[in-house]
Design a protein around this nucleic acid. Sequence first.
DNA 1: AGATATTTTTGAACATGTTCGAAAATATTT
DNA 2: AAATATTTTCGAACATGTTCAAAAATATCT
Lengths: 229, 229
Amino acid sequence: MKTRKSEETRTRILDAALNIFRERGFERATMREIAAAAGVAAGAAYYYFESKEAIVMAFYERSQAEMLSLIAEQMGKNKLLEPLLRAIISTKFEVFAPNRKLLGALSAHADPEHPLSPFSKETAAIREQDIAFFEKAVTQAGIKLPSNLTPYLPRLLWMYQMGLILFWVYDRSAGQRRTMVLYDKTLKMVMTGIKLAGNPFLRPLHKLAAELLEVIYGDEAALDRQSKS
Amino acid sequence: MKTRKSEETRTRILDAALNIFRERGFERATMREIAAAAGVAAGAAYYYFESKEAIVMAFYERSQAEMLSLIAEQMGKNKLLEPLLRAIISTKFEVFAPNRKLLGALSAHADPEHPLSPFSKETAAIREQDIAFFEKAVTQAGIKLPSNLTPYLPRLLWMYQMGLILFWVYDRSAGQRRTMVLYDKTLKMVMTGIKLAGNPFLRPLHKLAAELLEVIYGDEAALDRQSKS
DNA sequence: AGATATTTTTGAACATGTTCGAAAATATTT
DNA sequence: AAATATTTTCGAACATGTTCAAAAATATCT
């Protein structure tokens, strides 16, 4: 049986850790320090978290849960793609803002094998939830793309958002203004791009793009097809 | 005075380390193991290298030196942009191939503060050498772009190449075929893009693109200008 | 309630990156 | 060559993430 007290201890350790992470950064925080701040022995932290990095993962999951309802709420109001995308992306910025630097401990890992990588199997559930938001936005706004591109659009939008967040995490301009300007400008370009993508004039580009996306996201059988053309 | 013997010890440690890195990966290799394989005490490794990661940096520098002459040689023969770019990028793949996985220890760091990041000040010299190659390629091929985009082209090509290499490092398809197909297709697209970029038809896009690049690469004063438009 | 099982906590021990003072080897000066 | 200075090597010690067996606390069963 899982007691309330146990859950509370876990939370106390997580909160203590986040405080110290925010103060001193992920690297310089020590597990003994975190445990002490939570009023437990060092070993206890490992009863609740597999590793130091697992604490960051728990933070990630907690943030995601918080965003889930916020984003859903924000999205309800709108029918246009741009405000829908803004609802998703801006909410992320807002929720992550107090822990922006800590996100570096997450987003720094490009390696899909690394548990904290945005591409790992450990973060798959979160990633899929996120992609589902973009899928919902696309559907809700009634976006029509060539059928060979449609399945990729949510993932592309997710990648776009990951890129923005990555840029933001390491953006050292005051108040991360640089990211905000970039966000504004690129979102407009994304919107224009999506509008243009429907144009039959661009048929030859559609095929190119679809092939490219198949190489990136497809299985190895798809690769055989593409490596010949 | 720097003796030949000292230089030889350093090389022995570096080589031993690379062997073990290749066998077991960066993480699982221990400094004691490396030192033992090089026939020295653990502390000696730290006389020659500041840290375990500094060994990877030394590998990076050694590879860069090797590529410098190879690329220069390859580039001499050509006057067209596509083969010039291929000369740079393919040489990188070839030189890095035996240590592809080790590159993960480098490219995994998005944080520009991290010494091993491709964006750090520690790797600035290498990065600038690389960008100079792309600059030379662009000049040598006589590429003409709108003047507000010209200064960014070498950096954009460098980014493109970094993206390819990153994809390659974590590409688990047999023989990294996926990357090779991607390389083929995207290089063609880059070439088409550059040809099209010269077209006066696209004047409005030029301005957009230049603004965007200024936000990314410019100083904060440039930001002020852009945040108003 | 007392016995037994389960969950939680502890702190010592371990592995590994790293530091550091002293010893050894080598170079320079007298 | 002896004395001195410099470079190189050593290995013990340290910090920190992590493991683990035992103890303590708590829950469940009889």
